[in-house]
């Protein structure tokens, strides 16, 4: 039995649309005009125990909506969801006992309480054995570097401190499934690294199933073997990260730095290449590996531009996702998913 299972799930938000001004407000009161927004449409996938899945898509694709339905907060408008064999909405409290969730923009800790007090409270809410709690607290305090923060109230923590505290709170009751909705948003590289290491460690040691939503592709590359990409509320890709990289990493780019100001109009580009970006003395060219090669591109361009330096970028996930987001590959991906 999969740990998380969605079949044909949809979610429609219904909101009252108001015209501006007092007139609009009064009108909305007597004759409300509803607008429906389909946030998730015919969404199906499943996740097995112990997997770390990256759940990605552009702003407004429906990621947070999915997470909210999986946690049981939102009632799906259609289809069915099972988490650990339960309907998370109907059995919300029972489901809550076994899951952990981070909503990147909110805190589950109590604003005015010191971190230690908040964690005590959470330990009580999840009915942790006191001895086990002390052990985990000591462990987390070390791995997340929380020692100095334990006596600090949440309201006076920095973003990075808050997120570390948040993760400790989320994993404290050793949940079997954890949903992380943008856990690294707005953090610096060091904190991101620490958080990723912590998540990886929890996954490896306890077999925690993790679903991770993020716009930071380093998160994905470092944590997830599998990605699900959604667009406009439906799955457009579901599979291993490596496949996307192979399949869609056909474009690479070379960046040149030139001695003199560039005259872009006069450049003659070899077949299969296009200018990705340019500045006064900088040029980035994107090329299709199946048509040409890095050395061919370099040879063709070097004499034209008097390059003083050039570098070849590895095909990174970001540019691939960018292409997918831009719609270049959406059709191709859809076909593949269907095949």
């Amino acid at each position: 039995m999969p740990t998380i299972e969605l079949s044909h799930v949809s979610k429609v938000y219904r909101t009252i649309k108001k015209d501006s001004g007092l007139r609009g407000a009064v009108k909305a009161l007597f004759r409300p005009h509803y607008v429906e927004k389909v946030a998730v449409h015919d969404l199906s996938f499943h996740v097995d125990a112990g997997e770390v899945v990256g759940y990605i898509g552009v702003n407004g694709a429906g990621k947070s909506t999915t997470i909210k339905m999986l946690t049981g907060i939102l009632h799906p408008s259609g289809g069915s969801i099972r988490v650990l064999g339960r309907d998370p909405h109907r059995e919300r409290v029972a489901n809550a006992r076994e899951i952990g969730v981070v909503f990147g923009q909110r805190t589950q800790l109590w604003w005015d309480l010191a971190l230690r007090e908040s964690l005590n409270l959470i330990a009580n809410i999840y009915e942790l054995e006191p001895a086990r709690y002390r052990q985990l607290l000591a462990e987390f305090a070390q791995t997340l570097e929380l020692e100095e923060l334990l006596s600090v109230p949440i309201r006076s923590m920095s973003l990075g401190q808050k997120m570390r505290a948040e993760l400790a709170a989320t994993f404290l009751h050793q949940p079997r499934v954890v949903y992380l909705d943008e856990p690294t948003i707005g953090l610096d590289v060091m904190v991101k690294e620490r958080i990723r290491a912590f998540i990886r460690d929890q996954n490896q040691r306890n077999g925690t199933t993790v679903m991770l939503t993020t716009h930071d592709l380093d998160d994905i590359e470092q944590l997830c073997q599998r990605v699900i990409i959604i667009d406009a509320g439906s799955v457009v890709y579901d599979g291993p990260l490596s496949t996307i990289k192979q399949r869609f990493g056909t474009f690479r780019s070379i960046a040149f730095e030139t001695a003199h100001p560039l005259e872009i109009e006069h450049l003659i580009l070899p077949l299969g290449t296009a200018i990705a970006s340019h500045g006064e003395r900088a040029l980035e060219v994107r090329f299709d590996r199946t048509v040409t090669s890095a050395s061919q591109v370099a040879t063709a361009l070097m004499p034209q531009i008097e390059a003083i330096d050039f570098s070849l970028a590895e095909p990174d996930l970001e540019s691939i996702i960018k292409q997918i987001y831009a719609g270049t590959h959406t059709a191709a991906l859809r076909e593949e998913v269907l095949v």
Binding site: K68, T71, G72, I73, R92, V93, A94, A96, R97, I99, V101, F103, R106, T107, Q108, I125, Y126
Partner: peptide, 13 residues
């Protein structure tokens, strides 16, 4: 404020 999301994911009625 949307904090209801947090409250409803706690295993307490």
């Amino acid at each position: 404020e949307g904090m209801i999301a947090i409250e409803l994911t706690r295993p307490v009625d």
